[in-house]
Design a protein around this nucleic acid. Structure first.
Lengths: 162, 162
DNA sequence: CTATAACTTGAAGTCGACTCCAAGTCAAGA
DNA sequence: TCTTGACTTGGAGTCGACTTCAAGTTATAG
């Protein structure tokens, strides 16, 4: 009934944006489970594996080191996290981290906005007992930061001003 | 009229959360300008320097590599960025990066929330042609992500479940 | 039959960002 | 005077995360 699609490592790399080498590396350090092999020894991946790799990529983007990603992969497979209270704690705690990271990022955006539309003073950027400059303009153009939908622009800009 | 306060490297480290070694390292790679010295050769820092170091810390938190931070420090001192159009471009472009990073983080928060309040399915996390699971709960408890004020909790949680 | 492409493996190399070390200077206290 | 502490320097070492390499296998195309 189900004819699940299989992918080569190359296709997988293309779909996830993670290089073949890196995928093999993740397998080597057991971040990914040992992939199934064809008779000739070549790795094969299914959609599920691709999702996992994407999740890794996503967590990595948030600056999470590989070792911290590990437990997330366990919880993310099929488990009901309620059965693993320590994992729930982990999730909560990382959620806090991320929310605070978002705040941090938001401050940088504000800093940039401030610079962009006046370029005068400058304030600090600590997170304890935070004294931030008064937001005289928009905190972040509210349309741009709609939580969902990345607005199909390729997103990949790499600072490059000579 | 102004009696500007000076700080030792130790005090500076304490105030910024960056270690002395790292501060010296930043000076070594010229991310920070060579600090003034006392007669005995000891470094001295003023508030301005501390602000700069805090800015570095803040940008680092956003995952920006040191080399990319460099141009930000130039613009951040006293310059009106309008005079440096390439810097304006850099700022805009990094702003885009960050906004997209925030979206990415937001997705992780959503993933976690989803896991936390059901732990059933699992969706991917790519940013091109993004198919995200329907947000059945709050996108991120809206109070928590108030752009300003990190709500004086120490913010420093480090995943640690045995 | 041979060459090319797509993979495999284990091991070594690279790079960014620290982090540590050894040796030295200087000032103040017991 | 000796010791302690806070610093200085240059250089070496570490660590995470790749990235590259060399050598080998297998499948298909010319």
């Amino acid at each position: 009934m189900k004819e699940e699609q299989r992918f080569t490592i190359k296709q997988t790399a293309e779909q996830t944006g993670i290089t073949e080498d890196t995928i093999r590396y993740y397998e080597k350090i057991a971040l990914l489970p040992r992939a199934e092999r064809k008779d000739n020894g070549h790795r094969i991946y299914r959609q599920e594996d691709i999702d996992t790799i994407r999740l890794i990529a996503c967590l990595k983007k948030t600056g999470m080191p590989l070792e911290e990603i590990r437990p997330f992969l366990e919880v993310s497979v099929d488990t009901d996290p309620a059965e693993y209270p320590e994992l729930v704690e982990l999730l909560r705690s990382h959620r806090e981290n991320i929310v605070s990271q978002i705040t941090s990022l938001q401050q940088v955006v504000d800093f940039i906005d401030m610079k962009l539309d006046e370029g005068k003073y400058r304030r600090d950027c600590s997170d304890e007992e935070n004294v931030w400059v008064e937001p005289k303009s928009k905190p972040v153009s509210p349309g741009e930061m709609r939580y969902f939908s990345v607005s199909a622009k390729t997103g990949k800009s790499q600072a490059s001003a000579k």
